[in-house]
């Protein structure tokens, strides 16, 4: 009797959910029947995010596969692991073509900045040494504000996690020597606000070859292992030993149809005289994820080629107003 009561109670009540963003941990109680969209909207409202279309809630499903929560399905119907609280990472899922043209709100830019910086420092994105130093100088400006020669404590930067380890290992330089180089550029960013420095960071980072690419392990008909890269602009095919320069690219505008059948994935070009590109992935689950990313990126690609919606126009006007107001305040100071 008690047992059946417990089950009934569970099915009508709520369950604890933890959502980890790159700068906060949020805890909610979600109704048992809540959809992915209910949770996603709750997170966006809580952090004041309106440019919601770039983001998603990521989790490892009960089979250990990385998944994005579907918005139109119940949270509980998506193979989430039986852990308490149920935990999701709120992350950038789609990238714009140009950060400075498209990202409007400060909170959006900040979340992009944190995620891209983490990917560079973890070496998920290859970053050449010179770009690593320049990026570090913007990261320092964003964190500490203007360089001040009189109050600057030598060693401050040397102790920070500012450069990818691979870059440090490539040179015979002491921490102080790295600090000196970063400092030269840090000093050059004087008067830049946090959001300006973070935007400059993103402007440099978006030129890196691996920025904004979702890589998948695939093979072609000849069983040659390759990488498929899904990006804001289209699909890239890379040779296994070179994730930087694609061997072939398909812009979204050149693709007529994308589909999969079990482990086989088919890309049909607009030009009907061109052959279809067929590849194989290791799991159907992976093909589902690839298709989901293709659809999302293609939607955004099409949307960018139309006039801004009323909501985006308002958001841009508000952001512009807010920035000029702050600029006037800073000038007064």
């Amino acid at each position: 009797m008690a047992f059946s009561f417990l089950i009934r109670k569970k099915s009508t009540k709520s369950f604890p959910v933890k959502v980890i963003t790159l700068d906060a941990e949020l805890e909610f109680n979600l109704e048992w029947r809540a959809t992915g969209r209910d949770l996603f909207d709750l997170v966006c409202r809580t952090i004041g995010l309106r440019e919601t279309w770039y983001f998603g809630l990521q989790y490892q499903d009960s089979k250990g596969f990385m998944s994005w929560l579907k918005l139109d399905k119940k949270v509980h119907d998506q193979g989430i692991p039986q852990q308490i609280p149920t935990t999701f990472n709120f992350l950038v899922k789609f990238y714009p073509e140009d950060v400075s043209e498209e990202l409007v709100q400060e909170v959006t830019q900040h979340l992009f900045y944190l995620q891209v910086k983490q990917a560079i420092l973890r070496m998920d994105i290859y970053c050449p040494p010179e770009a690593s130093v320049l990026l570090a100088s913007y990261a320092v400006q964003a964190k500490y504000g203007d360089y001040d020669e009189t109050s600057y404590q030598p060693g401050l930067l040397a102790s920070e996690d500012l450069l990818p380890q691979r870059v440090i290992d490539q040179y015979q330089m002491t921490p102080e020597m790295w600090e000196d180089r970063i400092k030269i550029w840090y000093a050059d960013h004087k008067t830049m606000s946090r959001d300006e420095a973070e935007m400059e960071y993103l402007k440099v980072a978006q030129d890196l070859d691996m920025y904004g690419v979702n890589y998948f392990d695939i093979s072609n008909k000849k069983e040659t292992n390759l990488w498929l890269g899904v990006t804001a602009l289209g699909l890239n095919i890379y040779e296994k030993e070179n994730k930087l320069a694609p061997k072939t690219t398909f812009a979204w505008s050149e693709i007529r149809h994308i589909s999969f059948d079990d482990k086989k994935f088919i890309i049909k070009p607009v030009d009907k005289t061109s052959p279809n590109f067929v590849f194989f992935s290791q799991k159907v689950r992976m093909n589902k994820l690839i298709l989901d990313l293709c659809i999302g990126n293609h939607d955004l690609f099409m949307r960018r080629r139309k006039p801004d919606s009323m909501e985006v126009q308002q958001m841009k006007a508000q952001a512009k107003e807010e920035r000029s107001r702050r600029q006037i305040e800073r000038n007064k100071l």
């Binding site: 040494p129 010179e130 490539q170 040179y171 330089m173 020597m177 050059d188 008067t191 830049m192 400059e200």
Partner: peptide, 27 residues
């Protein structure tokens, strides 16, 4: 305060040159 891509290209070239003498052999 926004930086042009020209600024960034120049900065990257200058940093590259300043690091050059310290590269590990084969680096």
């Amino acid at each position: 305060n926004t930086r042009s891509s020209g600024y960034h290209q120049k900065a990257l070239a200058e940093i590259r040159n300043s690091l050059l003498p310290f590269a590990n052999s084969g680096g």
